[in-house]
């Protein structure tokens, strides 16, 4: 029986960089990677649109349409799957903090307002003609809420470690937990 890798239990945080985290995360859960990558893209494109708009202008149209819009649409599906898988497992539920639950609320608001804003776009309006009617009372407020909530969320997640830092941290933790489990398993063997 080969000697198990030394578990750097004392060393916290461990010596990892982003690539290690991503590799680890990817190995552990593809869904997780997708979720976080998409979230990153959406956040960055959103910020680019809102912050660099005056300079980039019409160049942002495909970014808004594809990178933010279509990926946003896919993200809604991934989010549903991801949140289901996360909340469905006791193990992951245990690492959820209040911040995570507040985050969840932010996500839901962003998704609803995002979907509302996009509801009058094609092809959604052709595919789901009813959706615009259902969401129409929201249409007037949706884009403003979407943007404002994003910034609040950014501020919130930095001040109360959620969001960005949370993302990095939890990614690390999850990867770490997994490793730990593996090691535990190995020991048991």
């Amino acid at each position: 029986m080969p000697q198990a890798k030394e578990v750097p239990e004392k060393k916290y945080p461990p010596d990892v960089d982003y690539s290690t985290v991503l590799k680890g995360m990817n190995r552990v859960s593809l869904l997780d990677t997708t979720f976080h990558t998409m979230m990153g893209i959406l956040l960055i494109t959103g910020l680019v649109i809102d912050l660099l708009g005056p300079w980039l202008g019409g160049w942002l149209h495909p970014i808004r349409e594809y990178a933010h819009g279509y990926i946003g649409a896919l993200f809604v599906l991934v989010f549903a799957a991801y949140i289901g898988s996360v909340l469905g497992k006791r193990k992951t539920r245990t690492v959820f903090t209040v911040t995570n639950y507040v985050d969840l609320v932010f996500y839901i608001i962003l998704i609803v307002t995002g979907v509302t804003t996009a509801s009058i776009n094609s092809p959604w309006i052709e595919w789901f003609p009813g959706i615009a009617n259902v969401l129409s009372p929201l249409v007037v407020y949706a884009p403003a809420i979407h943007v404002v909530i994003t910034y609040i969320w950014i501020a919130f997640s930095i001040i109360f470690p959620g969001g960005l830092l949370h993302g990095l941290a939890s990614t690390y933790l999850i990867a770490h937990l997994k490793k730990k489990t593996k090691i535990v398993k190995t020991r048991e063997e």
């Binding site: 649109i49 708009g53 202008g57 019409g58 942002l60 149209h61 970014i63 808004r64 349409e65 804003t117 009058i120 776009n121 094609s122 309006i125 052709e126 249409v139 007037v140 407020y141 949706a142 884009p143 403003a144 943007v147």
Partner: peptide
């Protein structure tokens, strides 16, 4: 040409004037 179809103007206008086109997405 500059419009990116974000619909912020639609939500801002108290008269409900700006209109989004699903073909050009503007």
């Amino acid at each position: 040409n500059r419009c990116i179809g974000c619909k912020f103007c639609i939500s801002a206008c108290p008269f409900g004037i700006p209109q989004f086109d699903t073909v050009t997405e503007k």
